[in-house]
Simulated scan of single mutants.
Amino acid sequence: MTTLTVDAAEFGYGDTGPVLSGITVTARPGEVLAVTGTSGAGKTTLLNAMAGLLPARAGTVAVDGTPLTSRDHAVSLSVVLIPQDNGLAAILTAAENISVAVIATGGSPADARRRTAGALESLGLSGQANQLIDELSGGQQQRTALARGLALRGDVVLADEVTSELDAANRQRVLDLLRAEAGRGAAVVFATHDPEAAAACDRELHLADGVATWARP
């Protein structure tokens, strides 16, 4: 069971002022933590920092007490990021995007085939497995990115606005899958501007004006 902790941290970009400051939060195994706030409040900044993409200017981001030093370090500690922009390779099919990621993180080709098929099926995308990313709708691309993240079976799963382009039925499907990730023991962090989606999570951290407050601790 893996815990991700942000302790008295400040984050920002370049020489500009801080985007977030004084951030302290723990993502615990077996629960889904919602990170909420308006557009520009810093939700993506916080998830990028948790993923090892953005170093803290002050304070620490750590996995089981080990401070993160880079994205590669976070990957080695089984921290999975499902980004808002989906990060899919347009020249690959939906299935290839997932299989490549599984193999890159140590899975065998057989593992990749099995996990890819299962993840696509869980998101209702079996029929799109062999379609190129550019042939998919925005919602299908978003679900493919989520399928890739789920196939990696991370100890920490960071999902950034992964329901923003989905209809109600697929949004509920995604929430159920994130809950299932927590059910197998992962620490799940879900950034969302959707109050209904946030209400389905165990706890809610709200970002506004560069600081975090607990809407539901």
Rank of each mutant, 00 (worst) to 15 (best):
M1R: 13
T2V: 14
T3A: 15
L4D: 08
A8P: 00
Y13A: 08
Y13T: 06
P18S: 10
T24R: 09
P29T: 06
G30N: 04
T36A: 12
T36D: 12
T38E: 15
T38A: 15
G42L: 04
T44I: 08
T45V: 07
N48W: 08
M50A: 11
G52L: 03
A58G: 13
G59R: 07
V61P: 11
P67C: 10
P67Y: 08
P67A: 11
L68S: 04
S70H: 07
D72C: 01
H73N: 13
V75R: 13
S76E: 14
V80M: 11
L81V: 06
I82C: 09
Q84Y: 06
G87T: 00
G87Q: 04
A89P: 00
A89G: 00
I91A: 15
A95I: 00
V100H: 13
A101F: 04
I103P: 08
A104T: 01
T105R: 15
G106C: 08
G106I: 01
S108F: 03
P109T: 00
R113H: 12
R115A: 12
R115W: 04
E121I: 01
L123C: 11
L125S: 06
A129C: 09
A129E: 05
Q131I: 00
I133N: 07
E135V: 00
G138S: 09
G139R: 04
Q140Y: 06
Q141Y: 01
Q142T: 08
R143F: 06
T144K: 08
L146E: 02
R148C: 10
G154R: 02
S164K: 11
E165S: 14
A169L: 14
N170I: 01
N170H: 14
R171S: 14
D176H: 12
D176L: 12
L177D: 02
L177R: 14
A180Y: 05
R184L: 10
R184P: 12
A186G: 08
A198E: 06
A199G: 12
A200I: 00
C201T: 14
R203M: 02
R203A: 13
D209C: 05
G210H: 05
G210E: 07
T213D: 14
W214M: 13
P217A: 15
